[in-house]
């Protein structure tokens, strides 16, 4: 007698599905910004200590991503952008995401404390709590400022990296945090402008729905001004320099121009060219953040040779 088992109703994920629960694309941003935070900080660390700190910060970010997928699996199944994620596509169970998120949270906090210091581990614990509980569970479905709050969680990695290296929070760490914090809302609001049905279908209180699209365009302009101011101020701290200032001036001119064009437009004009400026703003903002942190890294790496810094 042949032994046949129908496992079609069972969850039997491959290893890659667990990796997908950690949101690897978000983790790559976390790895990069945390690494820059560590490298820009004064003092020297052994490469193994740097590697461990970045790894455990990234694992903490991955853990909060898994907890986010556990809680948001219902709306992930509705939105086009997220319905191929492991839970809505039926590859993993919600319990697996919860278990992985909790286990990796504990592991990453403990290991960062042992590898670097407990101050940095405390910041990592707060970041995971903030993203998973304050943002995902509490405020994401309640307030149109959800993107602003979620942006704070994504802004912590360079600060944690800095604290892992120095043991203290300084003005440079706060400014790196503030730059990502101000960068996040306009980045996602422009996405909401040209991906309108996704957020509407999921009934998320996005600014575009609660306050209207004209107000969203105004918000993008205000945040672009704040973001540009912070980016330029960062150039005059100990981690800035001529390279950073040049990149900041070029990038922020482009951002302000795009934000101004988005602000001036109405919906009819935007639909005529299929949201050309909104798409351009969104695409460039990814490069924007990468270039700013790359410039900070360049300043840190070149300063021993007398080329970086002021």
């Amino acid at each position: 007698m042949a032994y046949v088992t129908d496992h079609s109703k069972d969850y039997d994920p491959v290893f890659g599905d667990y990796i997908a629960l950690l949101k690897p694309r978000v983790m790559s941003l976390v790895v990069f910004t945390a690494f820059v935070g560590l490298m820009a900080a004064p003092g020297t660390l052994h490469p193994i200590e740097i590697f461990c700190a970045v790894l455990f910060i990234a694992l903490g970010a991955g853990a909060s991503g898994s907890l986010n997928m556990w809680w948001d699996s219902d709306i992930d199944a509705i939105m086009h952008r997220t319905k191929t994620r492991p839970i809505p596509s039926g590859r993993t169970s919600r319990d697996a995401a919860l278990g992985l998120g909790v286990a990796l949270s504990g592991l990453s906090i403990l290991m960062l404390g042992l590898a670097s210091n407990w101050h940095a581990a405390g910041w990592l614990a707060f970041t995971i709590f903030f993203y998973a509980v304050v943002y995902t569970i509490w405020l994401k479905r309640m307030t149109p400022q959800n993107i602003v709050i979620g942006g704070a969680a994504g802004a912590f990695p360079p600060l944690i990296g800095w604290v892992a290296a120095t043991g203290v929070v300084s003005i440079e760490a706060v400014l790196m945090f503030a730059l990502i914090f101000m960068w996040t809302p306009p980045h996602f609001w422009t996405l909401a402008l040209f991906m309108r049905s996704d957020y509407d279908d999921a009934k998320l209180p996005m600014l575009t729905v609660t306050h209207g699209r004209k107000s969203t365009r105004r918000h993008i302009m205000v945040y672009a001004v704040l973001q540009s101011t912070l980016a330029v101020v960062l150039a005059f701290t100990s981690i800035g320099g001529l390279i950073y200032l040049t990149i900041a001036l070029i990038c922020n001119s482009i951002v302000l121009r795009n934000a101004f064009l988005i602000w001036l437009r109405n919906e009819a004009e935007a639909e005529l060219d299929d949201f050309k400026y909104e798409r351009a703003f969104f695409k460039f903002s990814i490069l924007y953040l990468f270039l700013h942190f790359l410039a900070i890294l360049a300043e840190a790496l070149l300063s021993p040779y007398g080329l970086g810094g002021w």
Binding site: V4, T5, H7, D12, P13
Partner: peptide, 18 residues
């Protein structure tokens, strides 16, 4: 039926190796 079993084994092996 054999293919179903093989698929399950492949997935579990992937988890175990990972």
């Amino acid at each position: 039926a054999i293919r179903v079993e093989r698929e399950i084994h492949r997935r579990r092996r992937s988890q175990n190796f990972g």
